[in-house]
């Protein structure tokens, strides 16, 4: 007999045991991703000269700023148990709208506004269809994907260069850090988006309801939570993030083109999953998605450092990683259940 020195008889031991619960860790999968990242850098620095330099790390952010923003929006959607296949096309559409409006002489702020409004509206529309007509997110956003890509061609089949001065100077701008390092403004924007998203997801009612809906939509409904607002809202957020990501991509490429960002939605989804977010919803952290993007970026860096590897290795390694992570997640969820 263990020594329960309870003065009341009310199943004390039971209570005691419960007190010992530490908060369960959502952090674990994120740590796994982080460890993977560090491991990859370890291997890289052994194999290639100059791989583990600070600027290489920073370049991961520079080259993937747009993908980070997309992954943030995708995280919101996946946390509710949904999926958004339209993001790649919306990126392309955004570059097109930016490039064509700028060519038509719009002031840059108006062009930016037009892009953001279009993307957000498109996301909102998909959200409304998904929630109110009970259409599968997969189908609704697949339609959105075709629609956005189609609209690109409607604007132009050709690539449109961006010659606007503001855009050009922004594109060329860099922020020098101590130690002869630099980042671009787009990096700051993407990190700001990550920070805001993390804050919203953890500190606001909207954010917590996102998790609730992902955990169990019917329960959230019976708890009297604003399920409709959240379910529609996450697609609007993803739409906004895609268009913002599109703008960053436009700055990166300095052109608008219908064939930009083909398949980028899959990169975003891969990043989110590798970052530890469960595809079934309810579990995941936005910081994980950031790490997921960095993992994808590191794979690319590997390939470019190696020089002999074909770029197909990127896809192959992403595929393998995805598989490993999904299997790991299965393990996690199994353990949760029992």
């Amino acid at each position: 007999m263990t020594t329960a020195t309870a003065s009341d008889v009310s199943g004390r031991s039971f209570v005691d045991r419960l007190k010992g619960y530490s908060p369960p860790s959502q952090v674990l999968p994120v740590l796994a991703t982080f460890a993977l990242l560090v491991g990859m850098f370890g291997v890289g620095s052994i194999r290639y000269e100059g791989f583990a330099s600070p600027q290489v790390v920073l370049n991961l952010f520079v080259d993937n700023a747009f993908l980070i923003v997309l992954a943030v929006g995708m995280t919101f959607v996946i946390l509710t148990g949904g999926i958004d296949l339209s993001v790649g096309s919306v990126v392309a559409l955004s570059t097109m709208i930016a490039a064509s409006t700028l060519r038509a002489g719009w002031p840059p702020t108006m062009a930016v506004l037009a892009v953001l409004v279009t993307g957000t509206t498109l996301g909102l529309a998909m959200g409304l269809v998904i929630h109110y007509f009970e259409v599968q997110p997969f189908i609704a956003t697949l339609a959105g994907m075709f629609l956005a890509r189609g609209l690109c061609y409607l604007i132009s089949v050709e690539s449109i260069p961006i010659k606007d001065e503001t855009f050009q100077s922004l594109s060329a701008a860099s922020i020098t850090l101590p130690g002869e390092l630099y980042v671009t403004p787009t990096v700051l924007i993407s990190l700001l988006v990550v920070a805001i998203a993390a804050w919203v997801l953890h500190m606001t009612r909207f954010g917590r309801t996102v998790y609730a809906v992902g955990g169990s939509e019917s329960s959230a409904m019976l708890m009297g939570l604003a399920v409709a607002r959240v379910k529609v809202g996450v697609y609007a957020i993803s739409g906004f993030c895609s268009s913002l990501g599109g703008l960053l991509f436009a700055l990166y490429m300095l052109s608008g083109y219908s064939l930009h960002a083909v398949g980028m939605e899959l990169d975003a989804i891969a990043a989110v999953v590798i970052g530890g977010t469960l595809l079934t919803g309810g579990y995941g952290l936005v910081i994980g998605s950031l790490l997921g993007v960095l993992v994808l970026g590191t794979i690319q860096t590997f390939i470019s450092f190696d020089g002999t590897l074909s770029s197909w290795w990127t896809k192959i390694s992403i595929g393998v990683l995805l598989l490993v992570f999904v299997v790991l997640q299965r393990f996690f969820t199994r353990r949760e259940v029992s």
Partner: peptide, 8 residues
């Protein structure tokens, strides 16, 4: 019980 087991 209609609650969300993934939340605190």
């Amino acid at each position: 019980v209609n609650l969300c087991t993934n939340l605190s």
